[in-house]
Design a protein around this nucleic acid. Structure first.
Lengths: 226, 226
DNA sequence: CCAGCATAGTTTGTCGACAATATGGGCTTG
DNA sequence: CAAGCCCATATTGTCGACAAACTATGCTGG
């Protein structure tokens, strides 16, 4: 009885994944009402597991639900989106600090390899914001798990990232930003490799702060309308 | 259509509240398995709403669920409990900063009144750790909501506090700590009243840091065994 | 012509029963 | 006598139907 891997994928889990990806990909647009039986027919499942999944999504803040009145995808205001980045800033800062203290050498090497792959991706598909976003997500994902702080990783990966990604596809990254972001990533990894948690935290916070300011600028320019 | 208050309390919400309070109060002990129909008979409801509530609780990390194998209350290791306080430290620090910037004068006055009431509570029931805990909770609750950062408040009030409270009733506060904590609270509110966000953040972080160290000390002394 | 209300329709909340799967006990076998 | 296997049981996952509540349409009255 060493590896207990019953690993039964329940329909509710399936429904949860389907809905979450549908929301992130933008198939389910924020704001408009979505009926339960519409979702049932779309994802080939019954209302029981679906409702369970809806409850979970609501609890995570991706859906808002009013009794007897249906469920709709949460639509963040511009200020709420900015507030989200304020939270990211401190939480990812902590993650970077703890990652610097706790990541294995192997994990750090992998992380550096990831950045190399990321660089070629940017060079090849110059302007392709999608790959940039995925690479960026991968980077932050590894640091969150590398922190060895289960609750922190859960909050980042389970709550915040999905909300950020949900709005990211609209935020076409500005011209030279991918390269600049990559440089920032590189410096963060350097700090982690040197086991300098304090510096890693500082750099990560500044990195996310830059992203936040970038969004705020776009909002003020009127480029971004939510 | 000014105040849309249908506010229908659904059975699932009821189940959610019942379970959450039962977990926090310690009626449901961490670790041991709890059957669904046991819960149904205990709270007078059917399995449908119950399962929905279970999904929500699981999503929030208070329950851990294995398919076909039942559900059990999460049991934190000592390191996980300490990690929780690391997260609290930064998040409540941010909350204090934003509260200093955004709370209304009225809210600040109420907060000060709360501290006064809290002081008399401590004097009257000296040693009664329960009231201390509730007053402490009230204080942090007000600051979280006062931050005007919806997501931040949701994460603090919805996720972290319940987990902390779940373990708090075992952590009998040490002798002189209530008075010291009250003093720390006072200084935080002072900083908020002066609209000094930076100072408020610093003081709040130090306040929670002290609480964390207090717990770590007890763990090392062997007083606290989870 | 507009405002307010009653009603019909649709959607959600809830319930009970059926099917699938993990746990525990007894048995067989080395 | 111990270890591994098999089966029975109980619990969980899933489904379809009924009841309650909100939304929207049409009507009446001012």
């Amino acid at each position: 009885m060493l590896d207990t891997t019953p690993q039964t994928y329940t329909r509710a889990d399936e429904a949860f994944d389907c809905l979450q990806t549908a929301i992130v990909k933008g198939d389910l647009v924020p704001g408009d009402k979505i009926g339960e039986l519409d979702l049932c027919s779309r994802f080939e499942l019954t209302r029981g597991p679906l409702r369970e999944a809806l409850g979970r999504l609501e609890s995570r803040g991706l859906l808002v639900r009013r009794p007897h009145a249906g469920v709709r995808v949460v639509s963040l205001s511009t200020t709420e989106l900015v507030e989200l980045y304020r939270i990211r800033e401190i939480m990812e800062g902590l993650a970077a600090r703890q990652a610097a203290e706790r990541m294995t050498d192997q994990e750090i090497a992998d992380l550096q390899a990831t950045l190399d792959a990321h660089e070629t991706m940017i060079d090849e598909a110059h302007g392709q914001a999608y790959y940039q976003a995925e690479g960026d997500y991968d980077f932050h994902h590894r640091i969150a798990t590398g922190s060895r702080n289960a609750k922190l990783a859960q909050m980042l990966l389970g709550d915040l990232y999905y909300m950020v990604r949900m709005y990211r596809y609209r935020l076409s990254t500005s011209a030279g930003r991918p390269h600049r972001a990559l440089g920032e990533h590189r410096r963060i990894v350097e700090a982690i490799a040197q086991r300098d948690g304090e510096l890693a935290e500082f750099l990560m916070k500044r990195h996310i702060n830059a992203a936040r300011k970038n969004i705020e600028k776009k909002i003020q320019e009127g480029v971004l309308t939510i």
